[in-house]
Design a protein around this nucleic acid. Structure first.
Lengths: 213, 213
DNA sequence: CAACAAACCGGTTGGGTA
DNA sequence: TACCCAACCGGTTTGTTG
């Protein structure tokens, strides 16, 4: 009965592939995942999950995203945001949700267009790539970050708060109150992670597709 | 605006693989499929779709199924039924919906147990394989088949009827009113189709999994 | 234009029931 | 025990708003 979504405890800190699509026709949002999902069966990969173990929310991974939805999910206090690649016919989607102190980015699909700046050598090609990094909290509404908030993360129950705030800083963060510099560093660092993961994801998908088609 | 689900016209009559999972994270039931889904991109296969071009509804394909749900879907007058493999830990699911004159069986997943009687040489092993073929219409409730009904198929709008009736017979069916023999024949024929398709499905999934794991 | 938010949608769950 | 069915759930659509 209790929402056993916090079983995941998220001890892993980098990125991982999950599949879960070999089992269900759609595996949409069924309720309480009582059948603790046998993700790690290690089969055909469908989604790429990246955990951002830092105070960075939605990262600009070289692509431009458009937010098309936001929902409150069962196990978490924080809402989940849904993004779609801004390229007109690209089917890639992406979900971002905060879990404890980090953000879980879930990619799906393969970009059917040349990445705007996936390679570090050629960037700033696409000018429509909006570089505002925290898309989750709209720039006019990130009032959750009023001054400095305590580093609570899971206790309070506010199921209907609208925008993902700048997440609580990591446990040893009291000295980073003036931040902004550290945040930029982490942003750059995570950006590289996301780029690598995106490339890896595309490669694996290509292999799978070539195998079958 | 109009539910454009009848674009599919279903001119194909056998079986086909669709993927659609490379594009969406979950691709659950979103609403009107306005973006006429680019299924036939020919990529990694996820679901096996079999169209029963006959007056056979839910076929016993050698496995035993348990019905766990039934919903009215948008584009169709007929409800969609949801089945799960009756083997205790087997994750295979199956959807059945009537479309025009035929039934669309959508398989997903791979049986993690030896098939009860997949090979034609060794059958009737599992005695718990309930052989009542029309599971969709519960045996006590198939009152839609009262005598002979006209071969209408799409005009009337009865969105909240509960059980899938024996489908309207194919267009040249007036001579099969006393049926029951023809139906058995078609049943056998389709049963073979389903068995073959099931084997093919497993093979392809095995290849994909071996490739990645 | 993009984001918000509520309605929508289909797949799943779970209690009632036969 | 399996089915029915209504509530549930999460992902998507769509009208509204800025």
């Amino acid at each position: 009965m209790a929402n056993n979504n916090d079983e995941k405890e998220s001890s892993q800190d980098e990125k991982e592939f999950i599949d879960q699509d070999d089992n269900d026709i759609n595996n949409n949002g069924n309720g309480n995942n009582n059948s603790n999902n046998n993700y790690n069966s290690g089969k055909g990969s469908k989604k790429l999950v990246i955990e951002t173990g830092s105070s960075i929310d939605h990262l600009d991974d070289g692509f431009s995203w458009r937010k098309y939805g936001q929902k409150a999910v069962k196990g978490s206090i924080f809402p989940k945001s849904y993004f779609k690649c801004a390229e007109p016919s690209c089917p890639v989607k992406k979900q971002v949700i905060q879990q404890d102190l980090k953000f879980i980015n879930t990619y799906s699909g393969k970009h059917n267009h040349d990445p705007p700046e996936l390679d570090g050598s050629e960037r700033k090609k696409k000018s429509n790539n909006n570089n505002n990094n925290n898309i989750l909290s709209s720039p006019k509404k990130q009032n959750n970050f009023n001054g400095q908030q305590p580093q609570q993360q899971q206790q309070q129950q506010s199921p209907n708060h609208q925008n993902i705030s700048i997440p609580p800083q990591p446990q040893s963060q009291q000295k980073y109150q003036s931040h902004i510099n550290l945040k930029e560093q982490l942003k750059e660092q995570l950006k590289e992670q996301l780029k690598e993961a995106g490339k890896l994801h595309s490669e694996i998908e290509n292999n799978l597709n070539d195998d079958h088609n």
